[in-house]
């Protein structure tokens, strides 16, 4: 029976080394002034946390991050559902459409970033080219502090909506067909069927997508890092970019961990919301 431990031993070693110990160490570090090259890392108590609460830049990056995450999660949740319902209809080429819509998801954020950065370039970007071709004014997509985050959000939806779309399609496949038949005999239109049968039955999937999307996009880094560098000014500087800058540009590891823990608490809050809502998700029946 003790031999059975051998089967979990490799994983437990990695898990303890790269997850459990680092989490505890992060908490420990956040109570110290931890410059990476210094010989000593003096204990500072709650100073890092006190500083965080007074740190305007932290609040600014948190605001940017929340704005981006809520907008992107909202757009993805709604848009992916519309597309999923459209693709789920018994029409020709549905596999082809599915194939195209999921394709950008397999790209690295690095690829997505360099492509989108040029698409939304004010002077040479293809988006503005077609806008002016249509007689519309050019837009400073990434250069205007008021629209830089919606632009990043739009690019992220292009890159990622195929994933929630597939989650929705999996949900749609679970809705029994007979539910539609009675309504159809009563003469309900397709739109009516969608609104009164599909959407209510899809509510668990919709909540699931909304919360997981929100959590995922709190961690946004690559898109602004590549496309804007956090600019213009600091209009698209996100929390993870601030963490990156603090720890790997200024080498302030203690305060960096404090930022990470601050963000983690925000994420944890939404994770708990998710657990509350979906604790018994698997027991839902139609």
């Amino acid at each position: 029976m003790l031999g059975n431990y051998l089967f979990v031993l490799p994983f437990m070693v990695f898990f303890l080394t790269f997850t459990v110990f680092p989490v505890l160490y992060a908490i420990y570090m956040s109570f110290h002034d931890w410059a990476i090259l210094a010989k000593e890392h003096p204990f500072v108590g709650l100073q890092n946390y006190a500083f965080l609460l007074r740190d305007d830049f932290w609040w600014l990056t948190l605001r940017n991050t929340l704005y981006f995450a809520f907008l992107t999660a909202f757009l993805n949740t709604v848009f992916a559902l519309i597309v999923a319902i459209a693709v789920h209809q018994p029409i020709r080429f549905r596999d082809f459409y599915r194939f195209i819509f999921y394709a950008p998801v397999v790209l690295s954020v690095a690829v997505m970033g360099v492509v989108a950065a040029w698409m939304f370039n004010t002077q040479f970007g293809i988006v503005n080219y077609y806008l002016t071709w249509l007689g519309l004014p050019a837009v400073k997509w990434l250069a205007n502090p008021n629209i830089v985050i919606p632009t990043l959000s739009l690019a992220t939806v292009w890159w990622g909506f195929g994933f929630p779309m597939l989650i929705y399609i999996a949900g749609l496949q679970g809705i029994p067909g007979h539910l539609y038949e009675a309504a159809r005999i009563d003469g309900a239109s397709g739109l009516r069927l969608t609104w009164s049968i599909t959407i209510p039955l899809m509510m668990p999937s919709i909540f699931f997508v909304a919360v997981t999307q929100l959590i995922a996009h709190f961690k946004v880094f690559g898109q602004p890092y590549i496309m804007t560098g956090g600019g213009p000014g600091r209009a698209s500087f996100t929390v993870i970019m601030y963490l990156y800058q603090t720890a790997w540009r200024f080498f302030r590891m203690g305060y960096g961990t404090t930022i990470a823990i601050g963000l983690a608490l925000v994420i944890l809050f939404f994770t708990l919301v998710q657990f509350r809502i979906f604790g018994r998700r698997s027991t839902i029946e139609y």
């Binding site: 431990y5 459990v20 961690k219 990470a260 823990i261």
Partner: peptide
């Protein structure tokens, strides 16, 4: 497989799913 503390271990691993990976980056 059966071994003492199996379910406790598994549940503690699951708890780790809740901790955002960003916390462990610096350590």
């Amino acid at each position: 497989l059966e071994f003492p503390g199996r379910d406790f271990l598994f549940v503690s691993i699951l708890f780790a799913l809740m901790v955002p990976g960003e916390v462990t980056l610096i350590p």
